[in-house]
Simulated scan of single mutants.
Amino acid sequence: MTASPEAPATLRVGLLQTAPVFGAIEENLARIADLHHDLDPVDLALTPELSVNGYGFAPHPQTDLFAADDPRLLSLVSAGIALGFAEKCAARLPWNSYLLTDPLTGTRHLQRKLQPVSYAPWNEHLSFQPGERLHTGDMRTARIATAICNDMWHPVIPWLAAQNGAEVLVVPVASAEGSDPARIRRTWELILEHTAVLLQCYVVFVNRCGTDGGARFWGGSRVMGPDGSVLAHLGDEPGADVAELDLTALRRLRAEVPLRAEARAGLLTGALTAGLGPAKEQLHV
């Protein structure tokens, strides 16, 4: 008797591109819930960085900080909505955190931003402490990891996620236009395509839109496939979109072209052990 083939593994993701306002907690949560209500059924709905608190380029009041098990968050997270929020810490600065849950198993994934931006106008190092660990875990049929905004500007972070098996990289962002909007957008396009193609993964980029703290955020949320194709895309206004990720095809690609297996992680370990500093000698080739 011939065994029947396994059902294709897929993950259906939704983009919830919102325009949160700094400190307007209840209104931000209500907008997320409304946008999700009108979305077609998905396995996981993703919101931008600090989608609950807003991004005001300033420290968040203590009254606006959340514990990861706050009922206001869990009421949405338990429905499969991922949220970005300012997470309280009793002894130190808060974390810039992102929380999602697998509604089927109840498994929670909490990621804290590893690389707060340390230069103006962001100055996140004055408002947030850095996270200490990159988490990779299972979500439905996929293995996922989260890289929050500036974490993606440090290529070792998505590389580590892929080396730990991540097939879907969730990238919640609060990217403002700044003085050169075209350059910012192009830089993100390069980062996302490079990550998707060379790390052979799906990249779900969720940027916010609207204005906050005097800055204009450009949206442009999208889902990218491992061939660099754009599977879903939003403009510069609040909105939602859906993409279905074919994990069976991704795993076939990884088996046929084993880029991750070729990685020599020991080189990284050796470089860190030796110390990373200014080169003392010119390298001749």
Rank of each mutant, 00 (worst) to 15 (best):
Leu276Ser: 07
Ala33Trp: 00
Ala86Thr: 15
Pro59Asp: 00
Thr101Glu: 13
Leu65Asp: 04
Leu234Lys: 00
Ala33Val: 11
Pro155Met: 05
Gly14Asp: 11
Ala271Phe: 12
Pro181Thr: 01
Thr187Asn: 11
Val117Glu: 03
Glu237Gly: 02
Leu29Trp: 02
Thr47Arg: 00
Ala58Asn: 09
Val171Lys: 06
Leu114Val: 07
Ala196Lys: 00
Trp159Glu: 14
Leu160Asn: 13
Lys88Arg: 15
Leu50Trp: 08
Leu192Cys: 01
His284Ile: 15
Gln111Pro: 07
Ser221Ala: 10
Ala82Thr: 07
Gln115Asp: 13
Tyr202Met: 10
Asn123Val: 08
Ser127Leu: 11
Thr146Glu: 00
Thr101Met: 11
Val21His: 06
Ala263Trp: 02
Pro238Phe: 03
Val170Asp: 02
Val42Met: 04
Ala68Trp: 12
His233Pro: 04
Asp246Arg: 04
Ser97Phe: 06
Pro5Thr: 13
Arg222Glu: 02
Thr211Arg: 13
Asn164Leu: 15
Gln282Phe: 11
Ala86Ile: 08
Thr146Tyr: 03
Gly137Trp: 09
Ala82Arg: 08
Arg140Met: 09
Asp38Thr: 12
Phe22Val: 10
Trp95Gly: 12
Leu231Asp: 02
Ala90Val: 13
Leu39His: 09
Glu177Met: 02
Glu189Met: 08
Glu281Asp: 14
Leu65Trp: 08
Glu281Phe: 15
Ala142Leu: 03
Ala30Thr: 14
Ala261Pro: 07
Thr63Gly: 11
Thr107Leu: 10
Ala232Met: 02
Asn53Thr: 15
Ala215Asp: 09
Trp159Thr: 15
Ala147Asp: 01
Cys209Asp: 01
Glu27Pro: 05
Ala274Gln: 05
Ala30Lys: 12
Arg72Pro: 10
Gly277Trp: 09
Leu267Ser: 12
His135Ile: 15
Arg208Thr: 10
Arg72Thr: 04
Gly275Lys: 06
Gln62Gly: 13
Thr105Lys: 00
Lys88Phe: 15
Thr136Glu: 00
Leu276Asn: 08
Gln200Asp: 09
Asp40His: 07
Ser221Cys: 09
Ala91Glu: 13
Gln62Ile: 15
Gly235Leu: 05
Trp122Lys: 10
Leu245Asn: 01
Gly23Trp: 06
Leu190Asn: 07
Thr273Ile: 15
Thr146Phe: 01
Pro258Asp: 04
Pro61Trp: 00
Pro172Thr: 10
Ser75Trp: 04
Asp34Gln: 07
Glu6Tyr: 03
Lys280Glu: 15
His36Lys: 14
Asn207Pro: 06
Asn96Gln: 11
Thr107Tyr: 06
Trp188Lys: 06
Gly178Met: 04
Val197Phe: 03
Ala215Trp: 01
Ala182Ser: 08
Val204Thr: 01
Asp241Lys: 10
Ala255Asp: 12
Thr18Ala: 08
Arg254Phe: 00
Thr101Arg: 05
His37Asp: 14
Glu193Cys: 14
Thr269Gly: 13
Gly270Asp: 09
Leu29Met: 06
Arg264Gln: 12
Thr10Lys: 12
His284Lys: 15
Val242Gly: 10
